[in-house]
Nucleic acid binder design. Sequence first.
DNA 1: ATTATACGTAAGGTATTTCTTACTTGTCAA
DNA 2: TTGACAAGTAAGAAATACCTTACGTATAAT
Lengths: 106, 106
Amino acid sequence: MQQAEPPDVFNAIAHPVRRQILDALRTEDQPVHVLAAPFAMSRPAISQHLKLLRDAGLVSEMRLGRERRYRLEPTRLRDVADWLAQYEQFWAERLRNLGAYLESTK
Amino acid sequence: MQQAEPPDVFNAIAHPVRRQILDALRTEDQPVHVLAAPFAMSRPAISQHLKLLRDAGLVSEMRLGRERRYRLEPTRLRDVADWLAQYEQFWAERLRNLGAYLESTK
DNA sequence: ATTATACGTAAGGTATTTCTTACTTGTCAA
DNA sequence: TTGACAAGTAAGAAATACCTTACGTATAAT
């Protein structure tokens, strides 16, 4: 029974290591050993996180000699941005309320 | 050894049930039995999701008779929004690139 | 007072996640 | 060619996540 896993972006960015990997790719494409360097964990562990990020569509991979260069693919982050956008009106409301409160206690 | 768990908002919103709960609270404060109703899972399971959301600071609880009314506390979603904001420039860049590409192939 | 409702917490089972080490493949360097 | 480097995959251990049922407590209704 093999249901094609939905690329769950929310789940992909839930892990701090994976967020840090994405952050590292913000500057520039990077090979795995560079991405793995900052972490106190084995390189295969990073490879596995990268696979998950790949499956989520958040990064792409290109072979370059014996390296594999990873590139940030940020478009899927829209899912998160869109979801968040529904709450922005709430923030605005909160700020108005706070403003009114501060006004009233002045 | 008891390290105070960091309220991990990213982790809190990773689970679809928890996102749906937050969505339900966007309209209005709700008691647990109302929040639980749409889900094909036991009420205690929902209680546990609510505890996680509470610990993450995403909802607050107030007793009201025998109910507990939950309220959305969206401010902590800023963590996510701030993180995402770092990628927005990337989207803009992508759009520019796409624009240039479309222009070049016209 | 008794019973029903709303909810949390406890305990436990199972699935999933996230590591590890061992191994394989492909590429570059001597 | 032989050896070193880059990186993926496999298998398994350990931790965590997420559900269930059972139970306890507080409030409301009869």
